[in-house]
Design a protein around this nucleic acid. Structure first.
Length: 297
DNA sequence: CGCGGTCAAGTGGCT
DNA sequence: AGCCACTTGACCGCG
């Protein structure tokens, strides 16, 4: 079991998702920003290795406007050595990596332009992992998308786009995660049957909407969609509901008791856990201790 | 130098 | 009808 937190480290004085406005786009600005982002990513990796946090979600913002048509620059070539170095460090330290394309990536949108932009974004994020020379256990994590009043055909459309439009490099890394209102675990299972992609399980989303599966059973179902040789072990997102806030909102800080209960419930199951908790590495470090005490690492 | 409106992109539930 | 939440706030113009 590896544990991690997404994108941002709050104890370092740098961010790997520096950006700028489209209006101020220039190649110079792009190169300068990417260089700073990659340097910060290296620092985050070092922090994580030092603290035993071996699961990292990289920000989608490493290369600003990477999939936007304004960007015609060959940043892949320019930063080839840097990406390779980062990948080398990741592999040498046996880290697990994911990326989570944002809400604009919708493969089953009725709008062809949205689908096109989504694919371009997936190609970009997958190419980061390819440039790092990571194997296919490094994953791209998206949601099912919209339902548009007819989830059945939306699911079919997802599968059709998968089979007819996605490059192999993206297919090999793509995963689907249950969301907090539309695509339940069972809907994701249907997508898995149609495409073979593994399911990333999110416990909080499952609490928001489900088909009655108890937590342990849900984790087992998701885990069964991962082919160990190709995909590695199950990845999951762990969070808890922020008290007295809107449904689905993530807590500020981890409850060690709740996390302990979750691990107890899933005893004997192996998985890598991404903590979607607002205070980032602070909670990840606490979670690490809880997992250590239960001898799960 | 700090504040706050705004930023490439989508969707749906809640107020 | 608009706001808010979502994997992550960060930028930049203005006072």
């Amino acid at each position: 079991m590896k544990i991690g937190y997404p994108c941002i480290n709050q104890s370092l004085d740098c961010t790997s998702s520096r950006t700028f406005r489209l209006a101020s786009y220039s190649e110079e600005r792009l190169i300068e920003t990417v260089a700073m982002n990659l340097a910060c990513l290296q620092r985050i990796l070092e922090y994580n290795v030092k603290h035993g946090l071996l699961f990292l979600r990289m920000t989608s913002g490493l290369v600003p406007f990477a999939s936007h048509e304004i960007n015609q620059y060959n940043w892949q070539e320019h930063f080839k050595a840097e990406f390779q170095q980062l990948g080398k460090y990741i592999k040498a330290n046996h880290m697990r990596i994911s990326m989570h394309p944002d809400q604009f990536v919708v493969l089953n949108s009725p709008n062809p332009n949205t689908v096109k932009n989504s694919i371009a974004e997936l190609v970009y994020q997958g190419s980061i992992m390819d440039l790092m020379e990571l194997d296919t256990t490094a994953k791209l994590q998206i949601h099912g998308g919209g339902a548009y009043g007819d989830k059945g055909s939306a699911i079919d459309r997802f599968a059709e786009v998968y089979h007819t439009m996605l490059p192999d490099a993206v297919k090999a890394r793509l995963c689907v995660e249950n969301d907090d209102r539309t695509y339940t675990l069972l809907d994701c299972l249907r997508l898995h049957e149609l495409t073979g992609i593994p399911i990333i399980f999110d416990n909080l989303h499952h609490e928001c909407v489900n088909n009655g599966e108890p937590m342990r059973e849900a984790v087992e179902i998701a885990a069964s969609t991962w082919e160990p040789d190709r995909d590695g072990i199950l990845m999951m997102d762990y969070s808890a509901q922020a008290p007295a806030e809107r449904k689905g909102k993530h807590v500020q800080s981890i409850s060690e008791q709740l996390f302990h209960d979750f691990l107890a419930e899933t005893e004997g199951l192996d998985m890598d856990i991404m903590l979607e908790i607002k205070d980032k590495e602070a909670s990840a470090l606490k979670a690490l201790e809880v997992a250590k005490a239960l001898d799960r690492l």
